[in-house]
Design a binder for these strands. Sequence first.
DNA 1: ATGGTGCCTGAAACCGGTTTCTGTCAACCG
DNA 2: CGGTTGACAGAAACCGGTTTCAGGCACCAT
Lengths: 343, 343
Amino acid sequence: MGNSRVTVREIARLAGVSVATVSRVWNGTGQVSEEMRRRVLEAIEEHGYRPDHLGQALAARRHGALGLVFPGLSGPYFTELIQGFESEAVPARASVHILCTHMREDSDAQVLEMARRVDGIAVIGGTISEPVLLRLAEMVQVVVLAGRGTGTVPSVSVDNAPAMTRLTRHLLVDHGLRDLAFVGNPDGSPDISERWAGFLAAHRELALTPPAEPVRVAMQQPDGVLAAEQLLRGGAAPQAVVCANDEIALGVLVGALGRGLRVPEDLVITGFDDAPMAALVSPPLTTVRQPVRDLAAEAARLILNAVEAPGTAAPDSIVLPTELVVRHSCGCPTGAPLGGIGQ
Amino acid sequence: MGNSRVTVREIARLAGVSVATVSRVWNGTGQVSEEMRRRVLEAIEEHGYRPDHLGQALAARRHGALGLVFPGLSGPYFTELIQGFESEAVPARASVHILCTHMREDSDAQVLEMARRVDGIAVIGGTISEPVLLRLAEMVQVVVLAGRGTGTVPSVSVDNAPAMTRLTRHLLVDHGLRDLAFVGNPDGSPDISERWAGFLAAHRELALTPPAEPVRVAMQQPDGVLAAEQLLRGGAAPQAVVCANDEIALGVLVGALGRGLRVPEDLVITGFDDAPMAALVSPPLTTVRQPVRDLAAEAARLILNAVEAPGTAAPDSIVLPTELVVRHSCGCPTGAPLGGIGQ
DNA sequence: ATGGTGCCTGAAACCGGTTTCTGTCAACCG
DNA sequence: CGGTTGACAGAAACCGGTTTCAGGCACCAT
């Protein structure tokens, strides 16, 4: 019945065997006679013995745990990341530790503290400084998630820049728009930085002048509403608002509709992520689909493999593909065929 | 320089002292002469020694970790929970493990597995069955978060039913509405169950007939869109849609606006949570504010205290207050004073 | 009878810390 | 001078597992 206080030695005593035998029976390693096995299993059963995780971990010099470090938790993007990460970790019997740095100044210490408790860590790009990242990497296996790695540190990310270039080109070329705004803070994360770069690149390749500055706001829906107010306040509203993610886009959409604008007739809006809501709002959102769950799952797999086979060279960085999803908010007719659009 | 491979005994050897002294110096316990302290600190500094967490935890018989168990991760509610929980755990030097059961059938085993790795667990109400909850409680400190406890298991929740009764009464009495629909699955979680109960109670106390059945959908924005389609499809649309949370409400709002309805003129919509977006949509959402972060922080505190002082009797269950937030989506004029409304 | 071979088993070492317990030594007191 | 006290240091036990290593034993071939 009872459970947590009973140890191997206790079980060994009760079964009249050595602790080695108990361990062998429990783990199914080595050779154990049928008689011994029966006696041990009986004692285990009767006292509800389960080996202490700390003891096991100490002996194995492995924590059986993976860490995930965020700047802060917000929106479907991060929840998807967590779940993708978990979907790989849990079957591998690794628990998932999470840490939100919130950009606190003691967050470096906290990340290093986490490193003492896990076998590997996935860090969301832009969350911690490079020196700390490197120190981390000499303690545990590290992967940068949604960002660029650093020499020894591999990364998993998506092809943000090309995707954003395709999307922007679609607006500039196929819809003939000229006055685009970009909403999102490129300094906030590598993802955004690359999307901003892709946005600029599309302008450059067409010899058009992009806006000098993005509208720098955070990544959540309310921030989009804020951005909409800022953009639509003066008379000089842009023709299109290219948003760094869907959440911002949904916020901008709410803000625009709230001011009586028609989308896409009066204002074109695009997002990034293809969040579940993107397809459901009116008008449905033109966006870029990225495999967020896969991204995190891939990161977890990378870490688990490296932990499993420590000798192996640091794995290469991985870039997952994205997909342009054209809906109605860019001005395309609803249900437009996707073929042949934007290159 | 190096770090992770160096142990107490190594440092002891290098400093020419015993391991006991190294431990005393590091922890600042006991009496150590200035000379010894200096030698030890020098060796520690030079080799970048940090005590192994597993060794410490094993000796202390404490993991220094807390667990958080979810059905699945979705929306701002859960991210707020995580962050509230973390805000208490991290300063207490406890790491946070998370587990999404996704209602998998092996989730019981996974929760029990988690119990071997943490000092205490907060379980979101309705996530695991009562027998498992009780088994869990004999292994570690357990708190039910947003749900009712079970005898020995304390809980932290909000006054869902009274709050929903107040909100419903506001619609029935102050706005004279008669045909209300409830969107949300009462079997999905104790929270929703209580809100549905509160909704029914308001009807009962006014001798009115509530709808026989709620519209059973999940808790995210897309589900609200779905519910809107379902409710508004036939000619028999209700006068008001009372949603189990803000996310559903925002989805219903999007769905309703998409069908050309005016809110609140043609359809009244209310939510629950007071999520950030609630105040920003048009019309702003009438809802109930609940202290989600505090809820989780309180749960973490409960666990930490219990772990700190194991002798103490199981703490009482805690019910945090909520607040009715009247905005425009219920039909009240924008910026209406809150005083004197709904009791 | 002797030696070799495999199968089982348990004592002991190990993982990396903390803590108790014993003992030394100097200072202080009568 | 002998005895008490207190500060300090280290040996060893402990936390709860796993794994190595050596030995006992049965069986078989020579």
